[in-house]
Amino acid sequence: MTVDELAETFEFLGDWEERYRYLIDLGRKLPPLSDAEHDDAHKVRGCMSQVWLAHDVQPGPPKTLHFRGDSDAHIVKGLIAVLFELTSDKTPDEILALDIGSAFERLGLESHISMNRRNGFYAMVERIQQMAATERGS
């Protein structure tokens, strides 16, 4: 899904109560993360909630990254799902070129989630960019 498609869906839903429900539904559709991946190596620092991110490399060509994640908070799982819609199954260069901050603003999330969740979201973005940078170099 593109930012445009996500923004269209958000606009169609109207009020923020519906949009939060949609986020929660997106989070529920995330494939489960294995018990082994719920560890310190996969944990994202800087989030108030517990968040774990992992990825697989699809060799390609071109090489792409597929992300997996989990959280103990429903809204945060939804934010993970939105982030994966924007980044998963893309090349490291495509991920690093994304302006996720402007996508976040375009969806209206910037002004409708708490400062702590916003900080956690950007911590997740940073982790995904680190994964992409590492894979680009390998």
Rank of each mutant, 00 (worst) to 15 (best):
7 A>H: 13
7 A>C: 13
8 E>T: 11
8 E>V: 06
10 F>Q: 13
11 E>W: 12
12 F>T: 13
15 D>S: 07
16 W>D: 11
19 R>Q: 08
20 Y>F: 14
21 R>A: 13
24 I>M: 05
24 I>L: 00
24 I>S: 01
25 D>K: 13
26 L>Q: 11
28 R>C: 01
29 K>L: 10
30 L>W: 01
30 L>S: 02
31 P>T: 03
33 L>Y: 00
33 L>P: 01
34 S>D: 04
35 D>C: 07
37 E>H: 13
37 E>T: 13
38 H>K: 13
38 H>Q: 12
39 D>G: 09
40 D>S: 14
41 A>F: 07
42 H>I: 02
44 V>R: 01
45 R>G: 07
46 G>K: 10
49 S>G: 03
50 Q>F: 06
51 V>H: 03
52 W>P: 00
52 W>N: 01
53 L>Q: 05
55 H>I: 09
55 H>T: 11
56 D>A: 14
57 V>R: 02
57 V>I: 10
58 Q>F: 12
60 G>C: 04
62 P>C: 13
63 K>I: 12
67 F>M: 00
70 D>G: 01
71 S>M: 08
72 D>W: 02
72 D>M: 06
73 A>T: 10
79 L>R: 00
80 I>G: 00
81 A>D: 02
83 L>K: 06
85 E>H: 14
86 L>H: 05
86 L>N: 10
87 T>P: 01
90 K>M: 12
90 K>F: 07
90 K>R: 15
91 T>K: 05
92 P>R: 01
93 D>S: 15
94 E>F: 09
99 D>N: 15
100 I>Q: 04
102 S>R: 09
103 A>G: 10
105 E>D: 15
106 R>P: 10
109 L>G: 04
110 E>K: 11
114 S>H: 07
118 R>G: 09
119 N>C: 08
120 G>T: 05
121 F>D: 00
123 A>M: 05
125 V>N: 05
128 I>Q: 02
130 Q>S: 09
131 M>W: 03
132 A>H: 06
133 A>H: 03
133 A>C: 06
133 A>L: 09
133 A>R: 03
135 E>K: 00
136 R>I: 11
137 G>W: 06
138 S>A: 14
